[in-house]
């Protein structure tokens, strides 16, 4: 299995420029390497509790992000490290939150599942499956109310797409034409349950039909396809036409969380997806094909990314634990009256 021959990854012929493609490569690789390091730190006991890795799904968030404008917001569940890095949050601050240190985005009080950056318009980081969907529509509601021209993107899983509050939200989002895009990251499993075993309608992009919400299925392993679909949906939402649903067909390579032995799928299934549809390999192949990069220049990028991640890991392990006084802060704000 290991040391297996590499089958050729699928090719993409969608339009893209050199700088753009190198940017995608770099952004996806940063997420991949960051997550691998997080997994390693978990194995060393530096990170505890639940830790959900994004490995395999990188193209979804990187493609969507590239279609967003300044001021647009993002919100997701607990599998959130990739989203934060894509939003431009610092590797150091994210990793230090994973280790529960004062240098983390929530000063160690949130952990892997709960981080936020109002500056980068990242609204979390939520642990309750499905909760981010109405919250994301609420951000859209505020955008419309304030007439600020921003669009909010709410990311959720195939499992989350069965929660009742998702449909209550769909109805209101369309009824009021809120500027929100629903991005379903269909990685085919909710913990150990495959979509087929949990969903009467497995084509999740159709879930908005009875609310008159247009849905599109997208190859979520192809960053260019994601970008194109996201651009269309975001423009649609920004122009006042209301929400769209994007079903991103993707795959998570690792277990649901660190303690999931993942016995519900075969190793072949994982290996096949990895070798044939890996989003990073696909971009890499295109870069080489177009002669926009060669082995050496790609190695240089790898090295640079490795250094960022190593620095983040070092920071995350040396940043001090939060001061004990932090236990009592941030419960309530002082009211003015």
């Amino acid at each position: 299995m290991a040391a297996s021959k590499k089958t050729k990854p699928k090719k993409s012929t969608l339009k893209v420029g050199q700088d753009e493609l190198l940017g995608y490569y770099r952004d996806m690789l940063l997420i991949r390497r960051f997550e691998e390091k997080a997994g390693q730190l978990y194995g060393m006991g530096q990170i505890a509790g639940f830790c959900h890795l994004y490995i395999g799904q990188e193209a979804v968030v990187v493609g969507c992000r590239s279609a967003m404008q300044e001021g647009d917001q993002m919100i997701t569940g607990y599998r959130d490290h990739g989203h934060m890095l894509a939003c431009g949050m610092e590797s150091r601050g994210v990793m230090a939150e994973l280790t529960g240190r004062s240098g983390g985005y929530s000063r160690g009080k949130g952990g892997s599942m709960h981080m936020f950056s109002t500056e980068k318009k990242f609204y979390g980081g939520h642990g309750i499956v499905g909760a981010q969907v109405p919250l994301g529509a609420g951000l859209g509601f505020a955008n419309k109310y304030l007439d600020n021209g921003a669009v909010s993107l709410a990311f959720f899983g195939d499992g989350a797409s069965n929660q009742g509050q998702v449909y209550e939200t769909f109805n209101m989002a369309k009824l009021w034409d809120l500027p929100v895009v629903f991005v379903i990251e269909n990685n085919q499993y909710a913990m150990g349950t495959s979509v087929e075993r949990s969903s009467a309608e497995t084509e999740l992009f159709k879930r908005g039909i009875s609310f008159e919400i247009e849905g599109v299925q997208v190859d979520g392993m192809n960053v260019m396809a994601v970008r194109d679909a996201a651009q269309k949906a975001i423009t649609h939402a920004r122009s006042g036409k209301g929400p769209m649903i994007l079903e991103m067909k993707t795959y998570r390579y690792r277990g649901h969380s660190m303690s999931d032995p993942a016995k519900y799928r075969s190793r072949d299934e994982v290996t096949k997806t990895r070798s044939e549809s890996d989003p990073i390999d696909m971009v890499r192949a295109r870069l080489l094909d177009e002669k926009w990069a060669d082995d050496d220049s790609l190695k240089a990028i790898d090295k640079e990314i490795k250094a960022i991640v190593a620095d983040a890991a070092e920071f995350a392990q040396t940043s001090p634990e939060p001061d004990p006084s932090e236990l009592y802060t941030d419960v309530l704000l002082d009211a003015e009256v």
Binding site: E321, P324, L327, Y328
Partner: peptide
């Protein structure tokens, strides 16, 4: 339990 939401950090969790 201390009257705050449960924190993640190891030291704060132990205090809570």
């Amino acid at each position: 339990q201390v009257d705050v939401p449960l924190p993640y950090a190891a030291n704060l969790e132990a205090m809570s």
